[in-house]
Design a protein around this nucleic acid. Sequence first.
DNA 1: CTTGACCGTGTACTGAGGTACACGGTTTAT
DNA 2: ATAAACCGTGTACCTCAGTACACGGTCAAG
Lengths: 132, 132
Amino acid sequence: MSYQISVFAEKCGVNKETIRYYEKKALLKEPNRTDAGYRIYSDDDVKRVKFIKRLQDLGFSLSEICKLLGVVDNDNVRCQGMYEFVSKKEKEIQKQIADLKRTESMLQDLKNRCPDQKAINQCPIIEWLVID
Amino acid sequence: MSYQISVFAEKCGVNKETIRYYEKKALLKEPNRTDAGYRIYSDDDVKRVKFIKRLQDLGFSLSEICKLLGVVDNDNVRCQGMYEFVSKKEKEIQKQIADLKRTESMLQDLKNRCPDQKAINQCPIIEWLVID
DNA sequence: CTTGACCGTGTACTGAGGTACACGGTTTAT
DNA sequence: ATAAACCGTGTACCTCAGTACACGGTCAAG
């Protein structure tokens, strides 16, 4: 029910330095301490770190997550805020996909220009890339 | 036909510090100098920088571009090398697209869970993210 | 009572792709 | 002749998300 930093970090699936880093970045609140100054964590703290990790996997940066946690912690905002947060990120992801697709088709186009084994100094890919 | 670094950088559309950076990273060869030690560049050098920038836009890192330029400069390799380089990057881009699509559908899924304006402490998105 | 495994703080380092100074020499226009 | 506008080198700094040390205190086992 109550853990020191090493066990806690392991339960969260992260390095213990990462825990301290999150604390410094205000993603985790200052934990209670033992008399010797050792940090103590609870199962709720585990949930919080896992929450952070999930959002990271979904493409949110730590500073975005920090803002979001501010909303969640204040508890005085409607679900709407969360919904908008997710929608905004969804749009960003869609833009990234569109950009990558454009890149992909340019690369395909380059490949099509180079069907055989010409000498490198006549390589049509290079010629195309060099044109202003 | 022959430029000092400021004009050259402007013609290339980059910062002049970037030019010096590329030189240090061996993407640009050491340029000729004036008696006072000022770097002098030609239109061919402009082409080279634009070549680099194109490849960057296509998702190549500077170290990949550096390798590629080694091939191009040596001039003793067949076009095949270039073709493989492009193919490899194409696969990487395709993987990135697939990853982003997965993320996108997770975000969509989250949005679907939160159709109305519940209080934040009951927000189904947050509840879902917190579950282990 | 000492050894090893913890914990604390603070600082430096990673990599990618640059940007920004500081300090000093050169060139050009007035 | 002097000030503005260049150029040179070298070093430090930036973001992001951590990781790695170094140095020292604490705690439990043998």
